[in-house]
Design a protein around this nucleic acid. Structure first.
Lengths: 372, 372
DNA sequence: CACACTGTGGAAAGCGATTGCCATGCTCAA
DNA sequence: TTGAGCATGGCAATCGCTTTCCACAGTGTG
């Protein structure tokens, strides 16, 4: 309000032919300049500091005028003039999923530390949509485009996405992916395979012999990698294939629930531990077991992956693998900003043994090994 | 330099389809125009379709050229030229918190439906930071600014925030808040008080007589409203004040844990039900009880608020009040877009009775009453 | 056959900034 | 006293795009 008043005072410069303009117009740098009785250029230099000096008396007048008028530079105009923006564009599969929101939090942190604003868009787990978003985002000329989402095998779309990103990079853009390695761009990747492998070894050492492995669709690389890593760990520990039952289902809580029901129906058949490739699925499994009259942990052990925050609050507390998603996010920004061409950074995971696998010593967490 | 070359020489025929262009310059509308052998103005009109017609033959040539060159309009330039952007700016307190990410999801949905892009920033629960963000965001001239976060009482900053938003609206911006009513802007508000009140009545009817109420700092309006609503409901059901114990703590899981420990230490003293003002706190309470050798639900009932997704997976399943956050998000966008000046929309909540309050009939959910 | 009219293309004026370049005034050394 | 050198202000070009305004051609009417 006071800002508007003072602007009409400065009505020396009629920006509009209308005297009483009902039209809401925001304060421009020109307004600040006239108010401070300097030129546009000087006002700009006073505000941006640059290497170029401005006599301190003038600078003060400009700063004062800007404050008085409530001036905020027009980011779009700055962007066109400078040819670059101060934003990082983030594409996630689903905000409501804690997995992605943790990543988003990490990215936001890192972006802020670099004076960048984050713009987030949601691809809704569709590679097609992801592609469209990237195309549109290119129009905003962000400093960085980060795409967070498990690769989903889909040849044609993937090729188009690569094209689009390559074009973006060709025009000076920076990118980072948070997903599985394989695309020709800097990638931050969670070491799913190794995490699952370590978990499997730990469980085998603890004496579990017969396993059920509940995983999602093979198209989802995250699921596949964890599944393979787990079986690799079992094999390395001398557990035979005939002691492993696989069930494929949805990559969701109810997927886990259903799979566990199926397992119970056809008789547990000596299965001692159920590994679900995500905590949400594992929690579905536990609820299903309980609904079937079995006590998770006592009657059959359960383990998951992700270490979501509720893993510690379910009963029994869930044995799982921690994935430092927030760090993955900050790392992605760092990677994009560095000139390290097409590097892949592996984020190490940590196994947490808890009450849901009572035979194993609920040890202090041990990282799954050095990252490569 | 080479870019300039290729552009000027492109007057002849198609641009060199050289794959190895050393100079990174992105395709501009001018490039498309020359490629299509029409003027800049015509190219713009062909792409944007406006009311102004372009002969179909020319339009086709422009469209083809744009596709061939992989042209993406520069959003910043469009924004400066048109004076407005196609974005909604969202300020949340914390992305990683499911409460806010659910809201963010709703906003993203609604924004997308209106052809808007969402840019999200994180205020980190600091009113000061929130203010700074809004100030910076104004520079991006978004269509809408949505602020999602419980009001925190803090006189000076709040006044500045009001100023800032008022200035934004004065220049044609649209706003919506998702928080408690009280600020002179369109507001979407979760009916916390009524939800808590209904919960209290339901519990009182079920026969619970002695209560502990665990809440967060009074500065946090969400906490305060739920607390007050609950006691109002108790009072209305004839429960006396001497049958209510209050504990104030952090608005977090560990706050809930600590409070419950304190409660246990000083003797439960006949308390039959513990109400925590958020589910995360309630889950902390349950874990604390169990750690103290008590069985939640059997030894003492527990209820929370929010209906976060894990509320159904803890044991016993948590009685709570569902808050349709996603809807709150979409509603906020609708509200901002409508010309409904300073309206307040109340989002109704729903009580879910579950096993953590075994005396109450685990009924089909009933909404907490019509919204105003 | 002249005349408004309409449909369409292009030149050019913005939008709100940044920045290269030149002009100016001042200081300081010769 | 004079000219070199430096600090600083301002004009104007520029970024990529939209949109107004004008010109011009083709049409149907009087």
């Amino acid at each position: 309000m006071s800002a508007l008043d003072s602007r009409s005072e400065s009505g020396a410069t009629p920006r509009r032919t209308r005297v009483t303009d009902p039209e809401p117009v925001s304060v421009t740098l020109q307004d600040v300049a006239t108010e401070a009785r300097v030129s546009l250029a000087t006002a700009s230099r006073a505000l941006n500091g640059g290497s170029r000096g401005v006599r301190s008396e003038n600078r003060d007048r400009v700063l004062a005028a800007a404050a008085r008028l409530g001036y905020v530079p027009n980011a779009s105009a700055q962007a066109t003039a400078k040819g670059s923006t101060q934003t990082v564009a983030l594409v996630v599969s689903d905000v409501a999923d804690p997995y992605y929101s943790a990543i988003a939090a990490g990215i936001t942190d890192a972006a802020e530390a670099n004076g960048l604003v984050v713009t987030m868009t949601v691809a809704d787990r569709s590679p097609r949509r992801e592609l469209e978003l990237v195309r549109g985002l290119r129009g905003h000329r962000p400093q960085i485009i980060v795409i967070a989402g498990s690769r989903i095998d889909d040849g044609a779309t993937e090729r188009e996405l690569i094209d689009e990103l390559a074009q973006y990079r060709a025009t000076g853009g920076r990118t980072a992916l948070i997903s599985q390695p394989g695309l020709p761009f800097p990638t931050v990747t969670v070491d799913n395979a190794r995490g699952a492998e370590t978990l499997a070894r730990t469980m085998a050492e603890a004496g579990y012999r017969r396993y059920a492995i509940i995983c999602g669709p093979n198209r989802i690389r995250t699921s596949l990698d964890r599944c393979r890593g787990f079986t690799a760990g079992l094999r390395a520990s001398g557990i035979e294939a005939e002691d492993q039952v696989f069930i494929q289902t949805q990559f969701t809580r109810s997927g886990g629930y259903d799979a566990a029901c199926e397992l119970v129906e056809r008789g547990l058949d000596g299965i001692e531990l159920i590994f679900a490739v995500s905590d949400t699925m594992a929690i579905g499994v536990m609820t299903a077991l309980r609904d079937a009259g079995l006590e998770p942990g006592r009657d059959v052990a359960v383990a998951g992956f992700d270490d979501i925050s509720s893993a510690i609050d379910v009963v029994p507390a869930l044995t799982t693998v921690e994935v430092p998603l927030r760090e993955a996010g900050t790392e992605a920004v760092r990677l994009a900003l560095s000139d390290d061409e097409n590097r892949t950074v592996r984020i190490p995971t940590t196994v947490h043994v808890r009450a849901s696998t009572p035979r194993a010593p609920t040890s202090s967490p041990a990282p799954t090994g050095p990252s490569t």
